[in-house]
């Protein structure tokens, strides 16, 4: 009676198969667990009229940076004001006299579109460029909580521009501002970074 014994060739094939099996298992486990290792998206998605501040055109980003700073300055100025009146917001002339961008008429103001600023209702500042076909118009609403920055491009042939220039810089136009009206008129709201208040 003969005894047969199978002897595998010592060429590493079996070991290779085991290693391949372990690698496959590791990859499969990793792929299965990957969805649990994702950072969760915080906050809500943006509405159609909202624009993330990080997605802005560099020129608009530059103006938004100045408006965000102006927002903080105005809040501090108001907090320090003696009158303490809830409706007392600094005038354009005051802001210009403080050399506060984008209201001060310096080199930056010239290069960024020579916006004509007007306080259209308490705490709401609107700027329309003298070249409204080229530069967007902006709206800073400091009276909102939190403060809001809006912009709108290509506003047509300057009826609003002429209207605003005709108004006195020291008085309010008293335009009723609400989000729905702005959205309807094609304004876009800048979302983030965090506004004051």
């Amino acid at each position: 009676m003969s005894v047969q014994q199978v002897i595998h060739a010592a060429n590493g094939v079996r070991e290779m198969r085991w290693v391949a099996l372990v690698i496959t298992l590791l990859v499969a486990i990793g792929a299965g667990l990957l969805p649990f290792h994702q950072a969760q998206q915080q906050g809500r998605s943006l509405a159609s009229h909202e624009v993330d501040v990080n997605q802005l055109d560099p020129n608009i980003n530059a103006m938004v940076s100045e408006l965000r700073l102006a927002d903080m300055e105005i809040q501090l100025l108001k907090a320090a004001s003696v009158s303490g009146s809830a409706e007392h917001w600094p005038s354009i002339a005051q802001l210009e006299a403080m050399w506060l961008s984008p209201f001060v008429r310096d080199k930056g103001w010239l290069d960024k579109g020579q916006h004509q600023w007007q306080q259209i209702s308490p705490g709401v500042y609107q700027g329309i460029s003298l070249s409204a076909q080229t530069y967007p118009q902006y709206l800073l609403n400091v009276s909102a909580t939190p403060s809001q920055i809006w912009f709108r491009g290509n506003i047509g042939h300057g009826h609003e521009e002429a209207d605003i220039k005709a108004k006195s810089a020291s008085s309010y136009i008293n335009v009723a501002i609400n989000d729905n009206l702005l959205i309807k008129q094609g304004w876009q709201q800048v979302m983030g970074p965090r506004a004051t208040k």
């Binding site: 990080n54 802005l56 560099p58 965000r68 965090r194 506004a195 004051t196």
Partner: peptide, 9 residues
């Protein structure tokens, strides 16, 4: 400190 600063890429 940068909570309110619009950042550049």
């Amino acid at each position: 400190a940068n909570a309110s600063v619009p950042l550049l890429s």
